[in-house]
Simulated scan of single mutants.
Amino acid sequence: MYWRLSNLYFWFFALLGGLLPYWSLYLEGQGFSYLQIATLMATIQLTKIVAPSLWGWLGDRTGQRVRLVRFGAITGSLFFAGVFLEPGFYGLLLVMLVFTFFWNAILPLYEVITLRVLGARKDKYGKVRLWGSVGFVGAVGLVGALLEWLPIEYLPWLLIPVFAGIVVSAFLVPSDRGEPKERAPKGSLKAIVTHPAVIAFFAMNFLLQVSHGAYYTFFSIHLEQHGYGKLSIGMLWSLGVVAEIVLFLFLHRLTKRLSVRQVVLGALVLTMLRWVLIAELTAVIPVLIFAQLLHAASYGVLHAVSVQYVQGFFGKHHHGQGQALYSGLTFGGGGALGAWMSGFLVDGYSTAAAFWGGAAAMVVAVIVTWWGLKPPPDQA
């Protein structure tokens, strides 16, 4: 069961590994402006505002999460094929919106499946999830090496085998017969969402994803402007995820010794440092390597803690909608806003200015966390 759970994480994040580091370079090669690139990259996050909530609601109501994951995998793959029609800016915007609407349904549903299968062994989540990081690293390295030999316009073709892997792995997840519908869910969803600690949690994660807008949209272009080749860019992206893998192996020890608030505050401060270093010392390779190792804090720690935080506050009866809200409000709303804001900063100033904007967002996130974040009931 461990390998069957890990398999979909591997392929899902392998697609991100082939997409995120190189898609902005592909769009630049297609002749799009920085604002157009920011808009197109924002669609990857934008549909997370609606899609996870809708699919999470369907998963909670029907109990058919595995079937919904399979449907999202197949439909998302089919719509991505619209990229090959070379539809221009508005056509590609539509393709990306529809493709990501179905593709973004997969992960929040699968997080619920994984945690329910693990049950009392939820501390093993990190070891399951780390295979997503392995898939990301493998795809970044392989695609980066191929793009040293192939023109960047071949990128969509290189992603086709990864889409096939996602579809196949979705059908390796054991079929579910569906869970009984809850006629009267225990606890009020509104009461949970309006809890001050939950508001602080969502605000912190929203700001975190705003700060990542420059990274996911312009990091590769920023590196290319400083003379790095595509393979070097891929290796730097991979380095951050390798640090994340190591972190997942030891995270359970960290969370047993420190409170949720302490872990989150430490990770936020390190994230702020990361953006400052990338903005100002990109040409200094040892510093850039250190900044990429901090990905273990800016993504690895905060995501793993957040997934379990949602489970602790939302409980069994609202777990799916809780994960959907986490994905939609933070990765969706925060990620899309961060991408657009970084586009304006790059267009008006420079890529470094966009990373300074991310650091400023982290200052606010630290204040919000210090003021309002409290542990969920099962960790209090």
Results as ranks from 00 to 15, higher is better:
residue 308 Q to D: 12
residue 48 K to F: 14
residue 179 E to H: 08
residue 45 Q to R: 13
residue 262 Q to H: 07
residue 349 Y to L: 12
residue 361 A to V: 03
residue 232 S to G: 13
residue 296 A to Y: 09
residue 71 F to A: 15
residue 115 L to S: 04
residue 303 H to R: 10
residue 274 R to H: 09
residue 227 G to N: 07
residue 258 L to Q: 06
residue 180 P to E: 14
residue 152 I to E: 06
residue 342 S to M: 11
residue 189 L to Q: 05
residue 263 V to F: 00
residue 271 T to R: 02
residue 49 I to F: 15
residue 111 E to N: 13
residue 74 I to Y: 13
residue 334 G to M: 08
residue 122 K to V: 09
residue 308 Q to A: 11
residue 263 V to N: 02
residue 57 W to D: 14
residue 366 V to I: 15
residue 365 A to Q: 08
residue 14 A to W: 07
residue 169 S to P: 05
residue 159 L to N: 02
residue 138 G to P: 02
residue 149 W to P: 00
residue 273 L to C: 14
residue 40 L to T: 06
residue 183 R to L: 11
residue 312 G to F: 01
residue 38 A to M: 08
residue 255 T to H: 07
residue 201 F to Q: 02
residue 216 Y to G: 10
residue 174 P to F: 10
residue 370 W to C: 04
residue 5 L to F: 11
residue 34 Y to N: 14
residue 328 G to R: 11
residue 209 Q to C: 03
residue 354 A to E: 10
residue 88 G to C: 01
residue 71 F to C: 12
residue 133 S to E: 09
residue 168 V to Q: 03
residue 72 G to P: 05
residue 323 Q to A: 10
residue 116 R to W: 01
residue 347 D to N: 14
residue 351 T to Y: 10
residue 109 L to Q: 14
residue 95 V to L: 10
residue 205 N to Q: 11
residue 205 N to L: 14
residue 174 P to M: 08
residue 304 A to W: 04
residue 185 P to Y: 04
residue 273 L to H: 08
residue 329 L to D: 05
residue 41 M to K: 10
residue 267 A to E: 03
residue 375 P to T: 01
residue 290 F to A: 15
residue 338 G to P: 12
residue 373 L to F: 03
residue 97 L to T: 15
residue 10 F to A: 04
residue 207 L to N: 05
residue 209 Q to G: 02
residue 250 F to M: 08
residue 210 V to A: 11
residue 136 F to R: 04
residue 146 L to G: 04
residue 239 L to I: 08
residue 354 A to S: 15
residue 314 F to S: 02
residue 177 R to F: 01
residue 90 Y to N: 00
residue 185 P to D: 01
residue 71 F to S: 09
residue 94 L to C: 09
residue 374 K to D: 00
residue 206 F to Q: 05
residue 166 I to E: 06
residue 306 S to V: 05
residue 329 L to K: 11
residue 290 F to R: 00
residue 306 S to H: 05
residue 302 L to T: 15
residue 194 T to F: 15
residue 82 G to H: 00
residue 23 W to I: 15
residue 362 M to K: 01
residue 112 V to S: 01
residue 315 G to E: 06
residue 62 T to Y: 03
residue 246 V to T: 14
residue 254 L to F: 07
residue 130 L to S: 08
residue 25 L to P: 11
residue 336 A to N: 07
residue 27 L to R: 09
residue 83 V to N: 06
residue 132 G to N: 04
residue 121 R to G: 01
residue 5 L to N: 12
residue 56 G to K: 06
residue 146 L to M: 15
residue 235 M to F: 12
residue 37 I to V: 15
residue 307 V to T: 11
residue 65 R to D: 04
residue 291 A to T: 06
residue 116 R to N: 12
residue 54 L to C: 13
residue 172 L to I: 06
residue 193 V to P: 05
residue 306 S to I: 05
residue 3 W to C: 07
residue 174 P to C: 07
residue 25 L to R: 14
residue 51 A to D: 00
residue 306 S to M: 02
